[in-house]
Design a protein around this nucleic acid. Structure first.
Lengths: 144, 144
DNA sequence: TCAAATTTGTTCGTATACGAATGAAATACT
DNA sequence: AGTATTTCATTCGTATACGAACAAATTTGA
């Protein structure tokens, strides 16, 4: 491997960083009041119902410390509420409030637009293929 | 668009975040002494020769403030040196030191391994296709 | 030639992510 | 039952990214 032969612009890692940057810019344009992670949390809670804080974190690929900060913020904004789990006193069950459900429902449209806009340089076939390939790269789905 | 129909696990943004997370873990396992951005800077400088600080930042997709911090650190580690541009007194030309060149040369192998490991869930054809698609998503190449 | 606009690099503030260490509670194992 | 291990949530420290505002230098255009 010759050092001169290394092409930064064709490395997956670099391309993912750039593609993700572009995506984040699109996201923030269409959904300025939330980050992708916040939206992911709402989506997951909407999909699966109340989860413990750590569980929620795992199911949207973030560690416990990060999840805590995020849940704090969502709770501040009234989108989520914590209740204690009678079966396990360590746990704090996180669930959507009505406001949280409403916010999620109101944002789904924008989320679809964001995905579409992000994928807009690709044909429909290419977009579908990319999604499939990324899913393989991303690893298992934490379906728990 | 029904809210219930929204599938987080098939959104490009979410998949890219997860894929990137996995990639970062691999990177840090094979090249613990550097971040992907630091390596990108070395690669770019190796490829194109000395660049002004802001230019370097643009060519590896980071803003001026971030580039400054990174260049400071690379300079601390002796991988890069700043010289003033006689033609433009605002500019600080950033170039690889011999140590920087050596570090880059010594890391190229690991970089290839990182890319290969990141792409390991895919066949060779799939990997090539993914790279092509990501390049389209990432936008233009700042070839300047 | 000279005023206006742009570019360069810097600093500051803010948001974000995560590893590691901790104490409390639950579970596993013997 | 009782000890060891694991899990939950929290806190602290550290690294990172970027927008915005700024002064100095350069370029543009009248």
């Amino acid at each position: 491997m010759n050092a001169a032969a290394y092409s930064l612009d064709s490395q997956v890692g670099y391309l993912m960083r750039k593609a993700n940057q572009r995506h984040l810019a699109i996201f923030s344009a269409y959904m300025p009041e939330m980050t992708p992670r916040h939206f992911a949390a709402l989506a997951r809670l909407n999909e699966r119902g109340p989860l413990s804080q750590n569980d929620l974190g795992r199911q949207i690929a973030m560690d416990a410390a990060t999840a805590k900060v995020m849940v704090d913020k969502l709770a501040e904004n009234g989108l989520v509420k914590r209740s204690s789990d009678p079966a396990d006193r360590r746990r704090r069950l996180i669930g959507l409030t009505p406001a949280g459900q409403a916010r999620f429902a109101a944002s789904v449209q924008a989320a679809h637009t964001i995905t579409a806009e992000t994928l807009s340089p690709l044909t429909a076939d290419e977009a579908a293929h990319l999604t499939t390939l990324l899913a393989k790269l991303a690893g298992p789905e934490t379906t728990a």
